[in-house]
Nucleic acid binder design. Structure first.
Lengths: 214, 214, 214, 214
DNA sequence: AATGAATGAGTCTTCATTCAT
DNA sequence: TATGAATGAAGACTCATTCAT
């Protein structure tokens, strides 16, 4: 095992603290609330010190956003049984992602922000890297749909588009919960969405079956 | 006969210039780029002069956003034949909205921003009025779905939720086009979405019949 | 009788309205609250129009202050019986001035302001004219004291200084009432002051005599 | 042993510079002349830097005023022999205060300003703390008077009122000197005031005896 | 004579970034 | 490494004064 120097450990710890603080602030109050002073203070380091770990504010925020994305994908992945049927797997993804977004509002708010950032022509390059995470996620969804279509569980469809829409439906559902101070419990909402997705199923019997598992 | 005084004309012209400048800047570079100095300069008026037309920056931005929302709804409404069948009407809405968003990128970016703003608990009240426009739009979509369900053109469903998802799908489609510098022409994309909606919504028994109309 | 043209009448009316508005604002909220916009609006004239009657803001304020001073002196003068004994006259002045200041808080606040203004080396010239009113008032007080000293009603003293101090005592008493939200009724306070001044009297019998009159 | 770190020294120095600059400006040109830019420049620091030492402009001004008040009280206190007779002590206070005000014109101008500020209902709370200094001073004066009355050096009187008037007389005397570019030397003026006070306060029977001491 | 739209200088305050220690 | 004092650019908002109408 590689020897990890005291220096590296500290470096790592600092970086982590800073990113965590940044995420927390973004989630709670948005980009405008992210000031070096505050991030530093919440991370137990001083304003000036931050510059030892990040070139500038923008880089720090970008790193924080990447971290959020990574975490989200990991959380979802861990809930999916890769051996299960496609519909079951789809449901698992939906439930995992909905829970993930519900648990970490910052994930959700950040998703919104990233969209906004990406929609700015001039800033696009700066944030482009973040799209990779999304792409990876969409590909997993698409694989599930492809599987289902191949096995005639789902109607034939443009699966790339399907994956995209399903993802958007999840995000917007979660978002609405946040904005509306949602009345429904999360599970009700999630099942409402799943019911909609069930319309993609050729044979509604699949729907019942997977339902028993939850 | 409405007599429009010179004063009113000027007042109107200024207000319009300011709102337009504001919209343009928001669309191009986001909220943070909206400074009184710049809005003024793009509208051909000085910083101080703006305050003759708007109480403060926030009010001005709010007005600009409301204008965008109004315009969007009007554009969509004008394309819908209220006497047509529900599926036809739904398609008309989708096409109109997709075109509207494509034409005015600022509409789209602004929608994203508003979402972000609304997701901030503390700022919610300030922007709440903007939700009314969305509500109105969703209600129109829902009415179409209700109609379709009643006439058995559509599967039975939670139409409120359906309206919500459809709207979100349109927005995210348009957004993706913007972010990805979309390869497909708009119509292709729109038809792809319509096809997906058909898959989700339409009672297969009635499929053939209504298809002829589109 | 001199013919007064319509023009002059209007001119006069406008000027009066403006000065009144200015006084009102100074009294209520201080100098900083005096904006051309507001003075104009309270006087029923527009911002720009004011410049037809006063060269600039400073001139207008100066005129307002002069008016206040004039009014104050007139009010006091009208309450003094020039044929009465010196002690009686002193009491009349004190009572009149105390009432005047109580009635028009603006008089009082303005007095404070004038002092401040005068204490500024560089601005002194601008406000110097206001001192004339004060001088006139002090001279009247001094005349009363001189009279009393000559007739051996008062102890011998530096009457100029005496007049000065008596005036200051009145002003500070009134001021304290304003600042402390004074508990005592005005007359009690005034009589308290008079009692103090009575110590200047050689023969306390005068004190009793004049007392009966109130 | 109090270790004073380099940091503390600097901190202290800056704070002092800023307060001094503020005082100087207030004294020379009044509140309106106090701008952050100017205070900074006179204290050898930049606009932005001030905010490291004071939360905002108001706090800074308040601190400056408090400093002035404290200094004034200290100067006076140091000149009073607490074991002396009441009349002697009164004279000591008068002389000390007159000198103090003469030496620091800013003390005086500021007193005027504070009065003005306090006379504004709506701003009162903000400046209320400053009244404490005055209260303390008046109480000391009152104690002297009480002493004198008890020992029959002074006439019986409302000592609270007396203390108030004496203080006001001192202030107005000093003020007049400033406004009139006073012809008399300070000591003459002070003795004039003391003589007047003797006339008002002292029981003629005891006059000769205590005179020897002054 | 009067308006009130427009100007633009002036004010407070915030914050990313630098740099001496 | 780390600090945090200091900078300076920027931004919102106010208001006396001007001037075309």
């Amino acid at each position: 095992m590689a020897h990890v120097s005291r220096k590296e450990i500290l470096q790592n710890f600092r970086t982590r603290s800073l990113l965590e603080a940044t995420r927390k602030i973004i989630a709670a109050e948005g980009f405008d609330a992210v000031t070096m002073e505050r991030v530093g203070s919440e991370a137990g380091i001083t304003k000036g010190g931050i510059y030892l770990y990040f070139r500038n504010k923008n880089q720090m925020i970008l790193a924080a956003l990447e971290e959020i994305a990574t975490e989200m994908l990991r959380e979802i992945e861990s809930q999916v049984d890769s051996k299960a049927q496609s519909w079951t797997r789809l449901c698992q993804v939906v439930r995992a992602q909905m829970e993930s977004m519900e648990r970490h509002k910052d994930l959700l708010r950040t998703l919104l922000l990233v969209r906004w950032l990406l929609s700015d022509q001039r800033e696009r390059k700066k944030w482009r890297r973040l799209l990779q995470y999304r792409e990876r996620h969409l590909n997993r969804l698409k694989a599930i749909l492809d599987d289902g279509v191949r096995q005639k569980t789902f109607y034939p469809m443009d699966t790339a588009r399907g994956a995209f829409y399903i993802n958007e439906m999840m995000i917007s559902t979660a978002l609405r919960r946040m904005v509306d101070l949602s009345q429904l419990p999360l599970t009700k909402e999630t099942e409402g969405l799943i019911q909609f997705l069930a319309l993609l199923l050729r044979d509604k019997k699949h729907f019942q079956k997977s339902e028993e598992k939850t």
